[in-house]
Computed example of a mutant assay.
Amino acid sequence: MNKKYYIVSSSSDPKLIGSDFPQAYSFIKEYNPNAPHALFDLYEYLYTKFPDYIPDLSGIRMSGRAKLTDIVSNGFGGQLEIVSPRTKEILETYNLCPHRFYEMNLYLRKVKYDYYMFHIQCDYSDLVDYKKSTFAKYNYSTKGASVSINSKEEFLTRRKIMGEKSILNSVTADTLFMTSEFWDMNLDYFYIGIVDGEDYISERLMKHLLDSKITGWDFIPATNLIVE
C-alpha cells in the first residue's frame, strides 16, 4: 500500500491572506535583521545545522494590506515558516523531521502577535530509489527530455553540468520512489532535499489541520511521491 502525502504550499487567496503575497517580508524600524543572532544570522543554519543560540526574531512585520492567518507566508527563504501558537501545538503532536520552533513577534498594523518560526532541516535524498524514480531536464519551469539516473551521485553530477551551461537549467525528479527505510520513519512533515525541493505532509496531519480550521496553507495531492 502506498502512503498518501500532500505537498504544502502557502495560500495566495486574497480573500484569505489579503492583497499582498507574501504576507510578511519586512521589519519594524526598531529591529535590525543584520544584528548578531537576528534573522539574517540564522541563514547560516538553514540547511546544515541548527543554531546553538535562541534567534532574536522580535521585529518581523506583515504588509499593511495582508490579513493574519495561522501560517503566514514570508519572503525570507529557506525552510522557514511563520506559524501561530495553535498551529505549533498541533504540529508538535505528530512525527516531524528534525526541526525547531523559535519564538517571534509578528506585527500587523502596529499590533504585536506572538508567533513562532518553524525551522525544518532534513535531507532524505539518500533514501530515494533512483533507479525506480523518474527525472527530467528543466529550463526554468519548462520541462524537457526525460533523464535516466541510477544514483544520488549521478543526479548531483548531471545537475552540476546542466547548471554550468545556464543557471536556468536543472534536473528535477518527476516521480520519487522512496525506500523501505523511509517508510519505517513514518514521518508526518518533511523535506526530501535537492531532488525536488517540496515540503510534504501526511494525510492524517493535513486532516487535523483542516478540521482545526488552521489557515494559510494549501495542500496538493503528492501524486509524484511513492512510499510503499
Rank of each mutant, 00 (worst) to 15 (best):
D184Q: 14
T157W: 05
I194R: 02
M185F: 06
K143S: 15
K131W: 00
D123P: 02
H99S: 12
P98N: 09
A136W: 01
R109N: 11
S148V: 14
F101R: 10
R100E: 12
F101L: 15
Q121S: 06
E164N: 08
K110R: 07
Y116S: 03
A173F: 00
S151F: 03
T172Q: 10
D114Y: 06
F182L: 01
R159P: 03
K152I: 08
R158A: 13
N150G: 09
G163I: 10
T175P: 01
H119C: 12
E153K: 05
T175V: 14
F177E: 04
E164G: 14
N169P: 10
K131F: 03
T172K: 05
L168W: 11
L127K: 04
N186W: 04
M117I: 14
Y138T: 15
V171F: 01
K132Q: 04
Q121C: 12
K132V: 04
H99M: 12
N95Y: 00
F118W: 07
S125Q: 03
D174F: 02
V195M: 07
N105I: 13
L108V: 08
T142I: 11
D123S: 06
R109Q: 08
D174H: 02
R100D: 06
V128P: 02
Y94A: 12
Y107Q: 05
M162F: 07
I194W: 10
T157E: 09
F177Q: 01
K131Q: 07
K160W: 08
T179F: 04
E153P: 03
E181H: 07
D129E: 06
T175M: 09
C97F: 00
Y124M: 00
S170Y: 05
W183V: 09
E103Y: 01
C97K: 00
K131I: 15
F190Y: 08
K131G: 09
K137G: 07
S125E: 05
F118I: 15
D184R: 10
Y191N: 03
G163L: 07
Y94P: 11
N105T: 11
D114P: 03
D129Q: 02
K112Q: 07
K110H: 07
L176S: 05
I167Y: 06
D114K: 04
K131S: 14
L168I: 13
Y140A: 15
I120K: 00
R159T: 13
M185C: 02
Y138K: 06
E153Y: 01
D196E: 14
I192S: 02
S166A: 13
F101A: 15
K132F: 00
N95H: 01
F101K: 10
M178D: 04
Y189P: 05
M178S: 04
F118A: 03
S141T: 13
V147C: 09
S148H: 09
P98C: 13
Y138L: 15
